[in-house]
């Protein structure tokens, strides 16, 4: 079974850990501890007759922890950026988290925007239309969830599974023709400019 790495990011206290816990344990703990550094959980899901193993990396939301994130984004198949629909600032921060992703990966990664806490409809500050607009502008997937009630959480991970499989198939098809033309794997990896790679490793605060 293939493993896929998924990285969760987004402002402090928007519900990253809670969404993951709802998905893994089908549980919601109002007293969840704040995440320090990174956390990890995994689960297998079945989509389109295939089983997919998801490795979920959960990161601390304070801006300062951003510099620890690149090594987790580096090999991710998909990045989930979470915001809190009752908190405008966390929505504005999407751009900030996007920078972190794009610095590391350019546009070569699927991004999922998730507006959490739909159970607090009365306190909503960010409309679904706004989320839709932001996602469409950048070609991201999007969904609203409530980790507390479980609303859309299964749906979120189903969609994650489907888009990862789709991308994986595309990638495999891309590599195949080159191999057919007697190109060795070696040549493919050499297509990456080693200087560029090095620069990337050296940049950033950590």
């Amino acid at each position: 079974m293939e493993n896929f790495k998924i990285c969760f990011m987004g402002d402090q206290s928007v519900g990253k850990t809670s969404i993951i816990n709802r998905f893994i344990y089908d549980d919601f703990n109002i007293n969840s501890q704040s995440t320090v550094g990174v956390d990890f959980l995994s689960k297998t899901i079945f989509v389109e007759n295939e089983s997919v193993r998801l490795h979920l990396w959960d990161t601390a939301g304070q801006e300062r922890f951003r510099c620890l994130i690149p090594s987790y984004v580096r090999n991710s198949s998909l990045v989930v950026i979470v915001f809190d629909i009752t908190n405008k600032t966390s929505f504005k921060s999407i751009e900030f988290w996007m920078d972190t992703v794009q610095n590391e990966r350019g546009d070569d990664v699927i991004v999922f925007l998730v507006g959490n806490k739909t159970d607090l409809e009365d306190e909503r500050q960010v409309s679904l239309e706004k989320l839709e607009k932001e996602a469409n502008k950048n070609g991201f997937l999007y969904l609203e969830t409530s980790a507390k009630t479980g609303h859309n959480v299964k749906q979120l991970f189903r969609k994650i599974g489907i888009s990862i499989l789709k991308q994986n198939k595309k990638r495999k098809e891309l590599i195949k023709p080159e191999l057919d033309e007697n190109t060795s794997l070696m040549n493919i990896s050499l297509n990456i400019d080693p200087n560029k790679l090095k620069q990337k490793e050296e940049s950033g605060c950590c």
């Binding site: 402090q12 206290s13 007293n31 969840s32 501890q33 704040s34 304070q62």
Partner: peptide, 13 residues
């Protein structure tokens, strides 16, 4: 603002 968000998530048990 960062402190406020962390207070009830510290030793919550």
């Amino acid at each position: 603002s960062v402190i406020v968000k962390d207070i009830n998530r510290t030793f919550p048990d």
